[in-house]
Design a protein around this nucleic acid. Structure first.
Lengths: 231, 231
DNA sequence: CGCGGCTTTGATGTTCATCAAGTAAAGTGG
DNA sequence: CCACTTTACTTGATGAACATCAAAGCCGCG
């Protein structure tokens, strides 16, 4: 492991307002004492599938992929997550072991908070409990609906959908650096690497999306949306 | 709507122990006053996609399907749910409107509990909050992992997987009445009706599974498991 | 500089959806 | 209760979509 320890107080955390707004100072101090904050470098595994769940993980800064091995040993990416998306919620309150692997796609800061500490706060703070509940619910819904959606499209539509998702939900612009490889794009939408590349080449030829190495530039957003919808 | 009203007290509910074990009698009485209990006949819609969320729904008895229209107007079944699976948890704490449709597959008893009432109890009862949390988390995980799994298989494997799932998780035996049509089977695993039937015919010819009309009998469970795993 | 991983493209074959046409079952209204 | 209509089921033939394989180029890194 190459991750490095950082120290800052929860009270000053940029994202305090998002997750922990219902906590009072005493509760925040408790969390602060229990939490450990780490920076992971690109490519490092934050959580390994099967690993015992001891901490609630809180994505403070960065970008990660959540992936899983299927029964027949294929790798499958379930979701790409960024701060505010509260990936840590999956599984932690219902299982003893993680069901997926989390890997940093860029430099990523993670807060580890002991799961028992979270449980204790939830037990004593109903407003916080409700808030966590609504976050879990939302994350799960989004993943499920995204899966269903992707599944109803064929390859062109899937790639188009994905590019739009990166542009609209992650980078907020039509040109950006793709944080994952072609193979990973395939693992995200369930298609072969070769075909991902083929479709990207087509988009390039048709002046819809220029993708050079990891540089993406969406040239015709309207058309891309049509392809996503009908492809 | 053809559903009919029933009346019984939560305190005597068979499933009280499962969901509401952390509630005291005062809280149970409150829930009891707010709840309405309905019986739905086979085929009736319990929830329609897009409908405003006003109640938490609790599946007491029966079997339902949870489905959704995709962008391109195809119908997709997300999950089959039976009592104890707490389908109502999806979405209700994070959105204003349901994102899916719930339909009864057989005579089904549903309790409607005002969502505000649930919120209030969660606010004041931490143990209950934690319990709800763990249920939501579990249901969502199962759906997500199931989707990923199905997606990694091809048609034969998908059908085999599904038949095993019905046998092991729903009916607890190797012969049972399939509660959904061939088309719905297809909508559940993302394949065409014609192909579902084709594969079922193959299984029949190969003495793996005999399916006549809705009667299913698994003849060679071991082989079916192999097909599910490697197909 | 050479090795390994990512990328690219073409050729090939498999898997699967689609279409069509027919049968069986189940619901509907007189 | 029977004719009628609709919906579910079934099978074959066809072609489209996609995975797989192979070979070659590119790039980063020790």
């Amino acid at each position: 492991m190459h991750e490095s320890l950082k120290t800052s107080h929860c009270e000053n955390c940029d994202f305090k307002s998002l997750l922990f707004k219902n906590l009072n100072l005493i509760e925040l101090n408790k969390l602060n004492q229990s939490k450990r904050e780490y920076v992971f470098r690109k490519g490092e595994k934050i959580i390994k599938e099967g690993q015992k769940i001891t901490d609630f993980i809180y994505l403070q800064k960065g970008l990660v992929k959540i992936s899983k091995q299927t029964e027949n040993k294929k790798n499958h990416i379930i979701s790409i997550a960024l701060p505010k998306s509260f990936i840590g919620f999956l599984t932690v309150f219902s299982q003893d072991n993680y069901g997926y692997t989390i890997t940093a796609l860029e430099e990523t800061t993670i807060c580890f908070i002991e799961i028992e500490m979270m449980r204790e706060v939830i037990l004593n703070n109903g407003a916080f409990a409700l808030h966590v509940l609504s976050k879990i619910s939302k994350v799960s819904d989004e993943i499920i609906f995204e899966r269903v959606n992707i599944n109803s499209k064929q390859v062109r539509g899937r790639i188009a959908h994905l590019l739009i998702l990166f542009a609209k939900e992650i980078f907020y612009r039509t040109s950006f650096e793709m944080p994952i490889t072609r193979r990973e794009l395939g693992e995200l939408i369930g298609m072969s690497t070769a075909n991902v590349i083929r479709i990207l080449s087509e988009f390039h030829k048709d002046n819809v999306v220029k993708m050079d190495r990891s540089k993406v530039e969406i040239m015709n957003f309207g058309l891309l949306e049509k392809i996503s919808k009908f492809g």
